[in-house]
């Protein structure tokens, strides 16, 4: 299977600050759903920013499959002056090259399809402040999908939502992942969320961030006793890591 993202002994530090990431190496296959788990401030978001080329590594090499990565932020980060549909249409417009500008009608049609995919067709003409937190995140997801990039990066996208909305969006996300076949890198500090969503869970240490644990999550590991065992095992490892640094997971 081809690799969508390859990290080869990547280091990252900011000017005069301590090292944020140290010798991070991992591969993510095309179409894989990987959850990146770690305490707050361990460098998870920095790692995503480097995949999205918003930050450059100070050492090592990063390879991202042709077409690059779309990014979904913790807050929806929608443009407040645009409606849900217009936010998606803007993403479609910006994703087009100079030579392949689509007609507005075609963009509108594609935006309608994407809004339908995230079950928000009825709210196409609402502005972000007229939508609930969960709806805004669904628009943000549709906008990320609009870029038609093979990799989707998600930085704790459901962290600020209530448990019921989060659970609904988990199912939506899994459905969309199966439908679109995108490679997803999902950052979270919730072990439950990581085990529920990911095919693989990578645990990142703090100060500096390193990959210190990796678990394959089979379908049967997502339910019942096996799930509990896996969650306990990862939680224990995360707790040890947090204890070692006196940090927190919030």
């Amino acid at each position: 299977m081809n690799e969508a993202v390859v990290f080869d002994t990547v280091d990252k530090s900011f000017a005069e600050g301590p090292e944020v990431l140290s010798e991070v190496s991992f591969d993510i296959a095309e179409g894989e759903f990987v959850c990146l788990l770690g305490a707050s401030g361990c460098g998870k978001s920095t790692l995503l920013s480097m995949i999205a080329q918003l930050e450059r590594p100070t050492g090592g090499a990063i390879e991202v499959t042709e077409g690059g990565a779309a990014f979904m932020f913790q807050d929806a980060s929608l443009f407040p002056w645009l409606t849900a549909e217009q936010n998606i249409m803007l993403a479609l417009r910006l994703a087009e090259g100079r030579c392949q500008i689509r007609q507005r009608k075609v963009r509108r049609q594609r935006a309608a399809e994407l809004l339908d995919l995230v079950r928000l067709s009825e709210h196409a003409h609402r502005r972000p402040h007229e939508l609930s937190g969960g709806m805004r995140q669904r628009v943000a997801l549709a906008r990320a999908l609009a870029q038609e990039r093979p990799v989707l990066l998600m930085d704790e996208p459901f962290g600020a939502l209530d448990a019921i909305t989060r659970s609904l969006l988990h199912e939506e996300l899994l459905r969309i992942w199966r439908t679109t076949g995108r490679t997803i890198v999902f950052v979270t500090h919730s072990v439950d969320e990581a085990v529920h969503l990911g095919q693989r869970v990578l645990l990142l240490s703090s100060r500096p961030g390193r990959i210190i644990g990796e678990w394959e999550v089979a379908e049967e590991d997502r339910e019942g006793a096996r799930r509990a065992v896996l969650v306990d095992e990862i939680t224990e490892r995360l707790r040890n890591e947090v204890g070692r640094h006196g940090g927190d997971t919030h």
Binding site: F71, S77, F79, W81, L82, A91, R93, L94
Partner: peptide, 27 residues
């Protein structure tokens, strides 16, 4: 600053960043 980051990940060039994101934001 998040508007700039979003513009960059959406693939906006300098002109698009100005006309589609900055100008509406400062209106």
């Amino acid at each position: 600053p998040q508007h700039h980051r979003v513009g960059r990940v959406l693939g906006a060039n300098r002109w698009q960043m100005t006309t589609r994101i900055l100008l509406p934001a400062i209106l």
